[in-house]
Design a protein around this nucleic acid. Sequence first.
DNA 1: TAAATAAATGCAACAGTGTTGCATTAAAGA
DNA 2: TCTTTAATGCAACACTGTTGCATTTATTTA
Lengths: 126, 126
Amino acid sequence: MIKRRNTTTQEAVLAVLKSKRKAMSHDAVFQLMDVDADRATVYRILNRFCKDEIVHKIVADDGKQYFAICDNCEGLPPIPANHFHFRCTQCETIECLAEPITYSLPDNYIVQQTNCILVGVCKDCR
Amino acid sequence: MIKRRNTTTQEAVLAVLKSKRKAMSHDAVFQLMDVDADRATVYRILNRFCKDEIVHKIVADDGKQYFAICDNCEGLPPIPANHFHFRCTQCETIECLAEPITYSLPDNYIVQQTNCILVGVCKDCR
DNA sequence: TAAATAAATGCAACAGTGTTGCATTAAAGA
DNA sequence: TCTTTAATGCAACACTGTTGCATTTATTTA
Ligand SMILES: [Zn+2]
Ligand SMILES: [Zn+2]
Ligand SMILES: [Zn+2]
Ligand SMILES: [Zn+2]
């Protein structure tokens, strides 16, 4: 793997992701960062984190990418992120659920990744 | 519900969706139509079909919307489309699986919709 | 410590997807 | 045939995410 360097922007992105224990969109991360950086740079950092398996990416039903460093993933390889995600339509947050994704497939299908989102109202919002 | 009118464009979109038994992106539908219409019109038709529950929409992990009129859905209300979808990375198709989505949730969560995609290689491509 | 290397960044431009306002067309009913 | 209004075409727009390229800067090496 390519050697990584420590940069303040990178640290800032990581700090934001760690502060919220939810999946965050690029824009949400960008807004909350305490150092200012270029949009493209933040995208590149997030994608780098994915490659390095520091975070995992979920594409929600709004078509946007969300990035999460979740408790459930700690220790475990986050890819494939085979747990459900929950998007609350009230508080507009996306969180990792401990619930693993289970299914039975027709013959001869091979699953490499999953992207599963349950949409509804979370415990805090009902 | 608002009264609908029959139009050739609408028929063409429906014909395309029926011809392939897969979930199709706007673009794929647009390419395969035998009458030429405006992009925006096709988008409006597809969204109308969703409202009228003629098709259901899936957002894949590429962030794009896909529209399907699937066998499994016939008779059943397609929303929430609580079955898994499978995207094959080889033939780049998305299909509805008969497999229903099952999960157990933390207390006090309510699920209103699902958007679950399994990604891998389908039976025809391995 | 100073020079060399290349990873990371800033900036700008771009591609792609999807939506919306508004004037016009045309389907359905009287 | 006339009326009503759903549906369309066109254009412009918003938004998300990516990429090329010159520049900066973290890290290694001398
Ligand atoms: Zn909530
Ligand atoms: Zn997760
Ligand atoms: Zn296939
Ligand atoms: Zn389906």
